[in-house]
């Protein structure tokens, strides 16, 4: 009798839990579909293609195993490309975040008309990469650009900006910093707003210096925001494409041929889709490792409130 009752309950349980699982799946279905079509499938296909030689249409022709990878790791072109990417990240990320932090600290003051500056500082967020790149293309024009006009005014020699292999990468980096500042600024300003003002008042009553306040109050409490913006900027910077395509097309002499641009060229110009896929997989692995390391590193240093 009792056993029968227990069985009945089990049945009820089973009957209840099955539909709820299906129901849950149904709710997830739209995002599962979208993610599958636009994310999971391309990702798996990329990994698959990286093991094959392909024809111009991107169909797998011949299985070559890890040959693409070993070729890449030995090729000077890929190494130049990796070097350019790392340098580009190095130029843009720290400088961009420090600049944005500086602006955010300025704009966090309670002054009259500060709203105007907040708008100005964050305005680059509203501009597309293409539009900003065209602006910078004009600025860097050796003959009529603002860049050389300023160099002349300050009595310095004119520069070739995007046309010289020595300065091209830095020039693109400068324009990228300018483009990314708006977003970083907004996020950091939001982070600053979240810091309890009573903490600063406590500091004022104790009479600690402004630098001490920045070091001991602002930065530790901003650290979650900083970690976020560093991660996002880093990933963004590794994936730079638009400004390279418009400003330099990877030139001069491959000096700005960053990895994503190289992938694009291999895939859609040289139709070497297998090799391009292998590069994409390597880039993905690299970013993944860097991000994991960053979070590991941040665990001890980031103070969540």
């Amino acid at each position: 009798m009792i056993a029968g009752k227990a069985q009945g309950q089990l049945k009820i349980k089973a009957r209840r839990s099955m539909p709820s699982f299906v129901e849950g799946l149904l709710y997830l279905l739209p995002s599962i579909l979208l993610f599958s079509v636009f994310l999971f499938y391309p990702m798996l296909k990329t990994i698959y293609l990286s093991f094959f030689l392909t024809d111009a249409q991107g169909n797998a022709e011949l299985f070559v195993g890890l040959e693409h990878y070993s070729n890449l790791l030995q090729s000077t072109a890929f190494r130049t490309s990796m070097k350019a990417t790392l340098l580009f990240v190095l130029y843009t990320v720290p400088a961009g975040i420090i600049l944005a932090l500086f602006l955010a600290l300025l704009a966090n003051q309670k002054l009259k008309g500060i709203g105007f500056f907040r708008t100005i500082f964050s305005s680059t967020m509203g501009m597309s990469v293409a539009a900003s790149s065209v602006i910078w293309l004009f600025m860097y024009n050796p003959a009529i650009g603002l860049g050389n006009m300023m160099m002349k005014t300050f009595g310095m020699s004119e520069m070739q900006w995007l046309l010289s292999p020595d300065t091209a990468l830095i020039s693109v980096a400068i324009s990228t910093i300018w483009m990314n500042t708006g977003f970083s600024f907004m996020i950091l300003l939001g982070g600053l707003h979240n810091i309890d003002s009573h903490l600063y008042e406590s500091g004022k009553i104790a009479g600690v210096s402004d630098f001490y306040t920045l070091r001991k109050i602002t930065l530790p409490l901003l650290s979650p925001t900083l970690l976020f913006i560093v991660t996002v900027s880093l990933i963004n910077s590794f994936q730079t494409f638009g400004q390279i395509d418009i400003l330099t097309k990877g030139g001069p002499m491959e000096s700005t041929n960053v990895i994503v641009y190289s992938i694009y060229k291999d895939a859609f110009v040289n139709f070497n889709i297998g090799s391009a896929s292998a590069q994409a997989v390597l880039l993905f692995a690299f970013i993944l490792i860097v991000t994991i390391l960053q979070f590991k590193w941040g665990e001890k240093r980031v103070h969540y409130q």
Partner: peptide, 8 residues
């Protein structure tokens, strides 16, 4: 009122 303690 909210004690103003430094969380870190």
């Amino acid at each position: 009122q909210n004690y103003a303690l430094f969380p870190h």
